[in-house]
């Protein structure tokens, strides 16, 4: 491996880890803020020096003396990343929103890996028919535009629960890549002379798998993991923008969505209106949070892949 590639790999890993560490610190700070800053509405407030009365969304880095809807409670609060149009602190909101979203991402990635590994093992170790069936199923999914498939599948499975709907739909999209990876690794091992020798010596299938396939499979799946996390995060954001998200929004009777619950996809569901009204903060903070975390995972994936393979 050239000096350039080694330097690139180490830098990417360091930057990726630093980004994730920074995001984790911000998330902890946000989660430590009292619950009222991510649940209660604050219709207005004075800048700390009392000179200017502002309506939300409050700008980033503003120290506000806010009041509640009855104009009774006055509380001082520092908005590091600004507020949404309900006066809620975007840092606290995004941090609380990240919890269910990251849980969902973790579950989706886990289901993708289980599905992909099982299908890949069946295709790699099974007969030609199994492989053809597996490839055909993957081929059908490839024929769909992924975002449309996710939306349709979520809407179809929603009566069984929103979490299940999201897990099923988002796992449906990415399992094939993992299955193909597993098949490719198994085929690679099967072509090696040590594998042929092992089979000739009468090694049983389970022992063969444990001794010869798993050591090749583990790093390949390890490399794929950060890329999958990043892809699922980006998909979650895109679905959120299309107003397909976990949980139910708070609505006025027959009216528009008022204030969203803390979940990243749901926070992004009003991005379109917020951008139109030039309220960029509430739209951009959750989107940037997703971007930053996805970038961290992408960089780690690139660095880890560089260990086994050349390329950027």
């Amino acid at each position: 491996m050239s000096r350039w590639h080694r330097a690139w790999r180490v830098t990417a890993l360091a930057v990726g880890l630093a980004i994730l560490a920074g995001a984790a610190v911000l998330m902890v700070i946000g989660l430590r803020e009292p619950l009222i800053w991510s649940t209660d509405a604050w219709p207005g407030g004075y800048l700390h020096d009392g000179s200017v009365l502002l309506q939300p969304p409050f700008p980033a880095f503003s120290n506000m003396n806010v009041f509640d809807i009855n104009l009774t409670t006055h509380t001082q609060h520092y908005y590091l990343l600004g507020s949404d149009d309900g006066g809620r602190d975007l840092l606290a909101l995004t941090a609380r929103g990240a919890v269910p979203s990251l849980e969902l991402v973790g579950l989706v990635v886990a289901v993708r890996f289980v599905l992909g590994a099982v299908a890949g093992l069946a295709m790699g170790t099974g007969g030609r028919l199994t492989r053809e069936i597996g490839r055909a199923a993957g081929g059908v999914l490839l024929g769909f535009p992924y975002l449309a498939l996710a939306v349709v599948a979520i809407q179809a499975v929603v009566p069984r629960g929103r979490w299940i709907a999201f897990i099923v739909a988002m796992a449906l999209i990415g399992w094939r890549d993992i299955a193909e990876l597993v098949v490719e690794r198994i085929e690679h091992v099967n072509m090696q002379t040590f594998a042929m020798a092992s089979t000739a010596l009468g090694t049983g299938p389970l022992t063969f798998f444990r001794l010869h396939v798993v050591p090749f499979l583990r790093p390949a799946l390890g490399v794929e993991l950060p890329f999958q996390v990043s892809a699922v995060l980006v998909l979650l954001a895109e679905l959120g923008y299309l107003r397909v998200y976990l949980g139910q929004p708070l609505r006025l009777e027959g009216g528009p969505t008022l204030i969203t619950h803390p979940e990243l996809g749901q926070l992004l569901s009003r991005a379109r209106e917020e951008i139109l009204y030039r309220q960029l903060g509430p739209a951009l903070v959750p989107a940037l949070a997703i971007f930053v975390v996805a970038l961290g995972f992408e960089l780690i994936g690139t660095a880890v892949r560089g260990r086994t393979r050349l390329g950027v």
Binding site: E238, A287, F291, L295, V312
Partner: peptide
């Protein structure tokens, strides 16, 4: 390229 891949399309 890595940065672009991590940006959601609407962003």
């Amino acid at each position: 390229a890595t940065v672009v891949l991590a940006i959601p399309t609407f962003l």
